[in-house]
Amino acid sequence: MFGTSLEIKTPEQILRMREAGLVVADALAAVRDAVRPGITTGELDRVAEDLIRSRGATPSFLGYGVPPFPATICASVNDAVVHGIPGRQVLAEGDVVSIDCGAIVADSDGQGWHGDAAITVAVGEVPDTVTELMRVTQEALWQGIAAARVGGRVGDISHAIEHYLHHQGDYGIVEDYTGHGIGTEMHLEPDVPNYGRAGRGPRLKRGLALAVEPMVTLGTHQTRVASDDWTVVTTDGSVAAHFEHTFALTETGIWVLTAHDGGQAALERLGAPYGGS
């Protein structure tokens, strides 16, 4: 079912997205458990692909875009913000790695439904400033999701993320890359920036699914694309963190499709209505 420029899902279609979301959640958990000094980002990629395919799902990222993305996950290390290509890079003690992962689950008609999420993982011990960067980025994600309401606006999510981060310290909020609608494709309208004014942007409707993904740095918000045409890095070399979840607006509230508990614990902590089943 499609609204004007926004893809609005039926409850049955949201259930298919929940299936994809749980595959992504399990893949990210497996990769997180595998992170250690000495492992390569390519080995982490194989962990994710093996799990996704073992569940009968398909990686969303593999072959996506131009040039075609060559892997199942994005593995972005230290000053890499997003879209890092996994390969021979060896993780070392003190690194941080953002793992972005997507999966597609097909319904009985063969239509694919996407889930998309990201985590940032410390490799061994990291400085306190980096630990705090990861904490505030993950909490900014939940603040943004909790601001979503049927009848509200995309800007409510954006403003909640920016407002929270500005009250946590002097962080760079990446502006050139945003969250997005999601469903039958990985990237749909609307864009969901990580900054902005409340009450602005497209109206939030029941059945809308969004991927929210704050990207935050210890320095500048400015980025550039590396020579591989994919990896996005900070221009000043500062460390970045990235967290993401896919959620849907249901009859009863917010259902975080890529969280094992549906987001219930975090949403209740923030006083937001939980809409899972």
Results as ranks from 00 to 15, higher is better:
G3W: 10
T4E: 15
T4C: 08
S5F: 12
I8L: 15
K9Q: 15
T10H: 03
T10N: 06
E12Y: 09
E12L: 10
E12V: 08
Q13Y: 02
L15V: 14
L15C: 11
M17G: 02
M17F: 05
R18K: 14
E19F: 01
G21K: 04
L22R: 14
V24E: 05
D26W: 04
A27V: 05
A27I: 09
A27Q: 03
A27G: 03
L28H: 07
A29T: 12
A29D: 15
A30K: 15
R32N: 01
R32L: 00
D33V: 07
D33E: 15
A34N: 03
A34P: 01
V35A: 02
G38M: 03
I39K: 08
T40F: 11
T40A: 12
G42L: 02
G42I: 08
E43H: 00
E43V: 00
L44V: 04
D45E: 05
D45W: 09
R46D: 10
A48I: 07
A48C: 08
E49S: 10
E49G: 10
E49F: 06
D50S: 14
L51Y: 15
I52Q: 00
I52S: 04
I52P: 00
I52F: 01
R53C: 00
G56Q: 05
T58S: 11
L62T: 03
V66A: 14
V66H: 14
P67E: 07
P68G: 08
F69N: 00
A71Y: 11
A71H: 11
I73F: 11
I73Q: 10
C74E: 15
A75H: 03
A75R: 00
V77D: 10
A80E: 14
A80C: 13
V82S: 13
H83Q: 07
H83D: 02
I85T: 08
I85R: 09
G87Y: 02
G87F: 00
Q89H: 14
L91W: 06
L91N: 07
L91T: 06
E93A: 14
G94C: 02
D95C: 04
V97H: 09
V97G: 06
I99D: 08
G102C: 04
A103W: 06
I104P: 01
I104G: 00
V105M: 08
V105Y: 02
V105S: 08
A106V: 09
S108G: 13
D109I: 01
G110M: 13
H114M: 00
G115N: 09
A117R: 08
A117S: 13
A117Y: 02
A118T: 03
A118D: 02
I119G: 00
T120S: 15
V121W: 05
V121T: 13
E125H: 12
V126H: 09
V130G: 03
V130T: 11
E132V: 10
E132W: 08
L133W: 05
L133N: 04
M134Q: 06
M134Y: 06
E139Q: 12
E139A: 05
A140N: 01
L141M: 12
L141G: 12
A146V: 05
